[in-house]
Amino acid sequence: MVPSRKVLFEEVRAIYAGAAGSLRLTGPAETEHVLPVSTYTGSGVKYEISLDFREGAVECRANVEKESVTLAAGIEDIALAAGIVERRGNVSHSARNLKQFTNLDLS
């Protein structure tokens, strides 16, 4: 079962509250143009958490805007670049509920 946009927004606010405070991010800005998207911004980076109803998935991306170019990366791409994991498929980044989402293992 895919959660509703209301549930997504509530859970994103709960999950990101600590990080948003410690990183001094503004947000969330919540929009529903095509997909429900919750956005946090700060220090030249924009974090977007979106819900894809068809795939039943939540996607998290970090965006850096430089003049007319926007660079975007998903969680797995960032973990690979940071050296947290050695190869694709070694990042657990899925959850069926809030408890699983807050206990994600990036090791």
Rank of each mutant, 00 (worst) to 15 (best):
H93C: 08
D52I: 08
S22T: 10
M1Q: 14
I75Q: 06
R13C: 04
T70A: 12
E11Y: 10
A82T: 14
V2Y: 03
K6D: 15
A79G: 09
A17Y: 13
E65F: 12
R5M: 02
L98M: 09
H93D: 02
T39L: 09
D77W: 00
R54Y: 10
R24K: 10
E10M: 03
V12R: 08
T31M: 06
S107T: 08
R87C: 05
G89T: 12
V34Q: 11
H93E: 00
A20C: 09
S22M: 12
A81W: 11
R87F: 01
A19H: 13
F9E: 05
G83A: 03
A79W: 08
E86T: 11
G27V: 04
P3D: 06
N97K: 07
R87T: 13
T102L: 09
V45H: 05
Y47P: 00
S92M: 10
T70W: 10
G27T: 05
Y40I: 02
P36A: 02
E59S: 14
T39K: 15
E32G: 04
A29Q: 15
V34P: 02
E10V: 02
N97R: 06
A57H: 05
S43L: 00
P36M: 07
T102N: 13
V64L: 15
A29H: 13
R87Y: 05
V69C: 11
R24G: 02
K6G: 09
L25R: 12
V64Y: 15
G56S: 10
V91A: 10
L71K: 14
S22K: 15
D105R: 14
G18I: 02
Y16N: 07
Y47A: 00
I84C: 02
R88F: 01
L104S: 04
V58W: 00
F101I: 03
D105V: 08
T39M: 12
S4E: 12
